[in-house]
């Protein structure tokens, strides 16, 4: 009788990589549902296009790299990357925006660095940044006007599809800038009270965005409860952004107010789904706090002083650069040690 030999532990937990990836994907569903409800089918098309192109790219790369295709497709990492990218794109952007971003994310940001687990940057956000820089028109003017506005209705499924595929012109009335954008552009010449009298704000355009943020936050809390992400990164992102906006944006007549920073843009999806991408973020719990705080601060700084209305992508990418350094200086205190070893040991410095 031949007994098989193996190294301990012989028992394995039930969680595997696909489950992690698909649980995260599932946690975005409330957010996706809200987006479709308030802003139309464009989000679904974006997500599907991104996923299809990501899976095709992943398959081709696996063929080139001579790896088992199904084994890697099954891990769900390409799926999740594409999903997150799709969620971040404007709903009335043409289909090729999602396609280009998705292929770039998978091919350049993920596989050219060695594939799953080896990419220093968040693939979805690098793809987003590429699109924002390369196609600013499509990326800033194709945001949707919400369905809750009176006298306004969303285009139907097939109408949206026709516009998405380029068979029909996108009607101006369907699109609108994001709240962060509108507020930032107009507060220079108007006061908060004047802005509030504007038709968009009166019409309950804002609640659409607020609901989306709340839906993402619910998904994020679910992930923390499932033990897939820890609270450190999201709490650090939200807390630092709250502190920054509270300190510097208390006057809503001058700058974008706190509640819009927290709920008006990509803050929630950023804090719970983007910043928590494990591959490109800091490792230790302490490191995640520093990393998250950095994202919060940079987000505020770029939103307030930069040219872009939102800043999660750039803030995350910038902090990706810092992750190895943060890891080097944020090792935890180990059992039986008096304090943690940060950086190099003293005697090693000489």
């Amino acid at each position: 009788m031949i007994l098989s030999q193996a190294s301990s532990p012989h028992a394995k937990g039930r969680m595997n990589v696909s489950q992690v990836m698909f649980t995260v994907s599932a946690a975005t569903l409330p957010g996706l549902a809200c987006l479709i409800w308030f802003f139309g089918w464009g989000y679904l098309f974006n997500v599907l296009t991104a996923i299809i192109f990501a899976l095709i790219t992943e398959t081709l790369v696996m063929i080139i790299r001579k790896r088992p295709i199904l084994f890697y497709l099954k891990d769900g990492s390409a799926f999740l990357t594409a999903l997150l990218l799709g969620l971040a794109l404007p709903p009335f952007a043409p289909w090729w925006i999602a396609a280009v971003g998705s292929v770039f994310s998978i091919l350049f940001v993920k596989h050219l660095y060695g594939g799953l687990g080896n990419n220093p940057f968040n693939p979805a956000m690098a793809g987003y940044a590429l699109l924002l820089i390369s196609f600013p028109v499509q990326m800033t003017t194709a945001w949707g006007a919400p369905s809750v506005m009176p006298g306004h209705s969303l285009p139907g499924f097939f109408e949206t599809l026709q516009m998405y595929l380029g068979f029909a012109e996108v009607v101006d009335g369907y699109t609108m800038a994001t709240p962060l954008d509108v507020y930032k552009l107009n507060i220079a010449v108007q006061t908060q009270a004047e802005l509030a009298m504007k038709s968009e704000f009166l019409a309950g355009w804002l609640p659409g965005w607020l609901w989306v943020s709340i839906a993402y936050a619910i998904g994020g809390v679910f992930l923390i409860w499932r033990g897939i992400i820890t609270w450190h990164t999201p709490v650090a992102v939200l807390a630092s952004l709250l502190i920054m906006s509270g300190l510097f944006s208390w006057d809503a007549d001058i700058r974008v107010p706190v509640y819009l920073h927290m709920l008006g843009g990509a803050t929630m999806i950023g804090a719970f789904f983007i910043a928590t991408d494990p591959v490109s973020s800091a490792t230790s719990n302490r490191g995640k706090l520093i990393y998250g705080a950095g994202i919060g601060v940079l987000t505020y700084v770029i939103r307030t002083f930069g040219n872009y209305p939102d800043a999660i992508a750039f803030a995350v990418l910038l902090m990706n650069f810092c992750a190895p350094l943060i890891d080097h200086y944020s090792r935890p205190k180990i059992y039986g040690h008096e304090k943690s070893v940060r950086g190099y040991k003293k005697e090693d410095k000489a």
Binding site: A6, K12, N16, F71, G115, L116, I228, P278, G336
Partner: peptide, 24 residues
């Protein structure tokens, strides 16, 4: 079940949360 082909490390950090010695 015996060990099989394993995936790449995705640095998810779940291991860090369970290490009784507080290692990474």
């Amino acid at each position: 079940p015996p060990g099989n082909l394993f995936n790449a490390c995705i640095r998810c950090g779940i291991c860090e949360q369970v290490c009784p010695a507080d290692l990474l």
